[in-house]
C-alpha cells in the first residue's frame, strides 16, 4: 500500500543544507495501522507530508498504492490524493466558507461523482452530526469540526488515511470520542492508517509504532532496529 525507500529531505538554510529527514525506509500493507512518534522537530510531519505526496523528497522514493510519486507533477499527485488518500489535520482544516455538508462533499465532487450530497449526509450521520450539515465551521465546536473532518477524510473511500496529530487541538474527553470514531471508521473501511502523534497512548492503539528523532528512525515496534543510524525495512 505504502512503500518508502531511502527517503531524505534537506532544506537550504543560510547557505548550508539542513537535513530534516534522512534515509527512512519502510513498507505498509493494506489495512495496516501505523504511527510515527517523536519529539517536536524530529521530522515526523515532514515524513507524513512526503508519504502523502504533499511534498517532494530530496532523494529516495515513495510508492502509494503502486504509484511512484517522485516524478509526478503537483497536479498528478493531487489526483492520486483525491483517489486514494484521506487526511485528518490537527487544526481540522475545514473550508471556512463551506457548510459542514459541503465540506464532506468536496472530495466526492472532485472525483466527479454523482449523489455526493446523499453520501455526505450519510457520513455526517455516521459521525453523529446529521443535524449540523448546514452549519459553517465557525458555528461548530472543535470536536464537531474534527468529526466533520473525519467524515470528509472517509468520503472518497480512501485506501490510506493520514492523520496529523488528530487530537492535538482537543480536550481529553473529546479526543477519546474522536479517536474511537477514527479507529471504528478505519476498521469498517479497511483503510491503511498512518498516524503522526506525540501521544504515546494514542500511538499504542496502532499495530506498529515508529520512533523518529533528529530525522532518523530510531525504533520500530515491528522489528528490532540494528543501529540508531541505520534505517529499517519493514
Amino acid at each position: 500500500m505504502l512503500k518508502v525507500e531511502n527517503l531524505t529531505k534537506s532544506y537550504s538554510s543560510g547557505g548550508r543544507a539542513l537535513t530534516v529527514l534522512e534515509a527512512v525506509s519502510f513498507e505498509l500493507a493494506a489495512g495496516d495501522t501505523f504511527s510515527i512518534v517523536g519529539p517536536s522537530g524530529s521530522g515526523k510531519t515532514t515524513l507524513l507530508g512526503l508519504c502523502a505526496g504533499l511534498d517532494r523528497a530530496t532523494s529516495g522514493s515513495v510508492w502509494l498504492n503502486g504509484v511512484q510519486l517522485d516524478n509526478l507533477s503537483e497536479d498528478q499527485r493531487a489526483a492520486v490524493r483525491n483517489q486514494y488518500v484521506g487526511f485528518i489535520f490537527q487544526n481540522f482544516q475545514l473550508l471556512p466558507t463551506l457548510t459542514a455538508l459541503e465540506n464532506v462533499q468536496v472530495p466526492l465532487e472532485l472525483r466527479g461523482e454523482k449523489g455526493s450530497a446523499r453520501a455526505a449526509q450519510e457520513l455526517l450521520a455516521r459521525v453523529g452530526l446529521a443535524g449540523r450539515g448546514h452549519h459553517y465551521p465557525t458555528q461548530l465546536s472543535g470536536g464537531e469540526q474534527q468529526r466533520i473532518s473525519l467524515a470528509r477524510a472517509f468520503a472518497n473511500r480512501p485506501t490510506i488515511l493520514f492523520a496529523d496529530e488528530p487530537t492535538g487541538n482537543l480536550d481529553a474527553d473529546t479526543s477519546a470520542t474522536v479517536v474511537d470514531l477514527l479507529f471504528e471508521l478505519n476498521r469498517e473501511a479497511g483503510t491503511t492508517l498512518v498516524l503522526v502523534t506525540h501521544d504515546l497512548e494514542l500511538a499504542a492503539k496502532t499495530q506498529r509504532v515508529v520512533r523518529i528523532k533528529g530525522g532518523t528512525m530510531i525504533s520500530d515496534s515491528a522489528a528490532p532496529v540494528s543501529s540508531p543510524a541505520s534505517s529499517a525495512t519493514l
Binding site: 503502486g66 498528478q76 483525491n82 486514494y84 471556512p96 466558507t97 465532487e109 472532485l110 466527479g112 459553517y136
Partner: peptide
C-alpha cells in the same frame, strides 16, 4: 504501477465552488 486516476469534476463543480466559497467573503 497503477494507472494514474483521471476522473475530474466538470465546470458545474467549479461554478458551485466559486459560489459557495464567495458566500461568506
Amino acid at each position: 504501477m497503477s494507472q494514474l486516476p483521471s476522473a475530474r469534476p466538470g465546470a458545474g463543480w467549479l461554478w458551485r465552488m466559486a459560489w459557495r466559497d464567495s458566500r461568506r467573503s
